[in-house]
Design a protein around this nucleic acid. Structure first.
Length: 95
DNA sequence: GTGATGACGGAAA
DNA sequence: CTTTCCGCCATCA
């Protein structure tokens, strides 16, 4: 089966979804791109000017350690120990 | 072309 | 709670 969607379109969609996360909230890699969460990581690592700290793992743990934690806390995101309280800060998936 | 890798997810033990 | 294993998709050596 050929790709039903170009790579650029997929990347653009990921970037858009990351950009649309408001301060004080987060989304998980899986919520952004269910079929390719690792691709989201690649985009965050290679694309500048993105609120990268608002993207966390599915279980609320952080990918970028203390640095990321500090930015989230500063925005008012509630934490449960070392992880984000997803019940409070997680946004619904986009349809 | 093949195989390893990564800012992941989820199930199983 | 932890570790292990496999699926996922684009990149890169």
């Amino acid at each position: 089966m050929p790709r039903s969607e170009s790579n650029e379109a997929r990347i653009a969609r990921i970037v858009e979804r990351v950009r649309s996360i408001p301060p004080g909230f987060v989304r998980t890699y899986g919520d952004i791109e269910p079929r390719a969460p690792r691709l989201v990581g690649r985009v965050l690592a290679t694309t500048h000017n993105l609120p990268w700290h608002r993207v966390v793992r599915a279980d609320g743990t952080l990918t970028q350690g203390p640095r990321q934690r500090r930015l989230l806390v500063r925005e008012g995101v509630r934490m449960r120990g070392e992880r984000v309280d997803l019940d409070d800060a997680r946004l619904p998936r986009e349809l």
